[in-house]
Simulated scan of single mutants.
Amino acid sequence: MKKARMGIRRVQKGFTLIELMIVVAIIGILAAIAIPQYSDYTSRTKAAGAVAELASVKTGIAMCVQETGTLNGCDAGAANGYVPTPAVTKNVTVVTSIKNGVITVTTGATDTSGTNLLLVDTPTAPAAGAANMTWTTTGTVCNVNRGLKPGQGDCP
């Protein structure tokens, strides 16, 4: 009877070392691809968030132009009170200036070296009889990979 039991083969339990090493290698390859893509995604999200947070400032500048007829004097904190100063957030990290309608801010979006991207919004006063003011966004925030793509946020 003992001899019959010794002949029974034991079932393997667990994984071999080579199988575990293959799984670790696959996870490493996926992480090497996913982490840079995720960084690009979060940077683009911060750039879009900065544009959205500046909407109230753009509205104030448009009201200032409507009332005064000129972009001159449409500054943040001006006595006319039209243009609000935006709050510093994770999307708008530094408000450099809002002078004569031109908005210059540093965004939370970064390039591949970690430098924050600059957003410059320049208004064009509406022509006589026109209803809408047009905006052009320039600066390093118009970066295809880590910022806004052409056509987004008024980037050319």
Rank of each mutant, 00 (worst) to 15 (best):
K3Y: 09
K3W: 08
A4F: 12
G7K: 15
I8C: 06
I8E: 12
R9T: 11
R10I: 12
R10V: 14
R10H: 14
R10M: 13
Q12I: 13
G14A: 10
F15T: 08
T16W: 13
L17K: 13
L20R: 13
L20I: 14
L20C: 14
M21W: 09
I22M: 15
V23E: 05
I26C: 11
I29M: 15
I29H: 07
L30Y: 03
L30E: 01
A31H: 10
A32L: 10
I33A: 10
I35N: 02
S39R: 15
S39C: 01
Y41D: 01
Y41P: 06
Y41C: 07
T42V: 12
R44L: 06
R44Q: 15
T45Q: 14
K46H: 09
A47W: 02
A48V: 03
G49P: 02
E53S: 04
A55S: 11
S56M: 00
K58V: 00
A62S: 13
V65Y: 12
Q66N: 12
E67V: 01
E67W: 04
G69T: 03
T70G: 03
G73C: 01
C74M: 12
G77S: 10
G77H: 13
A78D: 13
A78Y: 04
Y82Q: 05
T89D: 06
T89G: 04
T89K: 05
K90H: 00
V94S: 00
V95T: 12
S97L: 12
G101D: 10
V102G: 11
V102F: 14
I103S: 08
T106R: 07
T106W: 04
G108F: 05
A109C: 03
A109G: 03
T110Y: 00
D111H: 03
D111T: 00
D111V: 07
G114W: 01
G114R: 02
T115W: 01
L118Q: 11
L118V: 13
L119K: 05
V120I: 14
D121L: 15
T122V: 10
T122N: 09
P123I: 07
A125C: 04
A127W: 01
W135M: 12
W135Y: 09
T136K: 15
T138V: 15
G139L: 07
T140C: 00
C142M: 03
R146A: 01
G147I: 02
L148I: 02
L148G: 06
P150F: 10
Q152D: 05
Q152E: 15
P156I: 02
